[in-house]
Computed example of a mutant assay.
Amino acid sequence: MKIKLFPTLNSVEEEDLKGTTAVVIDVLRATSVITTAVYNGCLDVVPVLEIEDALTYKNEEVLLGGERRGFKIEGFDLSNSPLEYNRQNVEGKRIVFTTSNGTRAIIKAKYCDTILIGSMLNAKYLADFVVKNGSDINIICSGTDGNFSIDDFLCAGKIIYEINKLKETDMTDFATLAYLTYMNNRENIFEYLKYASHYKYMMSIGLEEDIKYCFKEDILDVVPYFKDGSIKKYPL
């Protein structure tokens, strides 16, 4: 199995993705939100690029969720906090979702044959799925505003670490670096994470509890996948 890691959304080209399996990561917080919502029984999650796109879906059967600069969008039902996407709020609901980075990465990955949603929350279960599937994978880190994010890099390393526990892989140098970074810091991940600029920004706007939740490991046994415009639970 070959593993290639793209450090940012902007490092991905269409030709890189055709005919491949992709894992999209925006650990703080979009893919953590999506994983949580799917686990808690939402009907599906529809990622869109712009606020205006989301508003066209607005009705009593749909929840609008997302953020800009980390803050809830005016007129939306939910923010980008995974803590809001509990079973009481989302079960049986369609969620239309737009964020600064994560939903853009998901939509850009549309050229892949299979698109999976990755987070710390479901890393072990995602790794088990891709190993059983057997195909080579491209891991796409969304990054922050086009820039590299340590937080996504650590999450990618976690997923690669879990895959390598199950199967020998052929990793690119960047994937290897993510693997080693996670492996060497997994016992005290927050000591490394605190150097991330995105972490510092989220702390500055009061999102410490979201960060703590998003870095809980292997607590949700679900693999969300993106197909035909929406994200659902893969039938494991």
Rank of each mutant, 00 (worst) to 15 (best):
Y179D: 05
E168Q: 12
T103A: 07
G92W: 11
T114P: 02
G143Y: 08
T181Y: 07
C155D: 03
I163Y: 00
K110V: 10
Q88L: 13
R69Y: 14
Y85E: 03
Y57R: 10
D136V: 06
I117R: 10
P82A: 02
G143L: 05
I150N: 06
Y161S: 13
G75M: 01
A123T: 02
L154E: 00
R94E: 12
V131K: 13
C155W: 11
C112W: 07
V62Y: 11
T56K: 15
N122W: 11
Y179T: 08
S79D: 11
S142I: 05
N89Y: 03
Q88M: 05
R68H: 10
T114K: 15
T103Q: 03
G102E: 03
F97K: 01
G92H: 12
G146W: 06
S149W: 00
E84K: 10
F71D: 01
T181Q: 04
I115T: 12
A127N: 07
G102Y: 11
F153V: 03
I117H: 13
K72N: 03
N133S: 11
N86T: 11
Y182V: 02
Y125R: 14
I73D: 00
K108R: 15
I107P: 10
K58C: 02
N101R: 08
G70R: 13
N89E: 13
D128F: 11
V131R: 06
S79R: 04
D173Y: 12
K72W: 08
I137W: 06
I106V: 14
G157K: 05
N133W: 09
N59C: 02
N80E: 05
F71A: 06
E61H: 14
E84L: 05
L180C: 09
L154C: 01
N122Q: 11
G118D: 09
T144K: 15
N59A: 00
E187R: 15
S149Y: 00
V96R: 06
N89L: 08
A178M: 10
M183Y: 14
N101H: 08
D128K: 15
I150V: 14
I95Q: 07
A175Q: 07
K72M: 12
F148I: 01
R94S: 14
D113N: 14
L126H: 08
L116F: 09
D113V: 04
L64N: 01
L55Y: 07
K108V: 02
F71V: 02
L78S: 02
T56Y: 10
A105Y: 04
D113F: 05
A54I: 00
D170K: 14
G118I: 08
E74R: 15
L116G: 07
I150C: 04
N138Y: 08
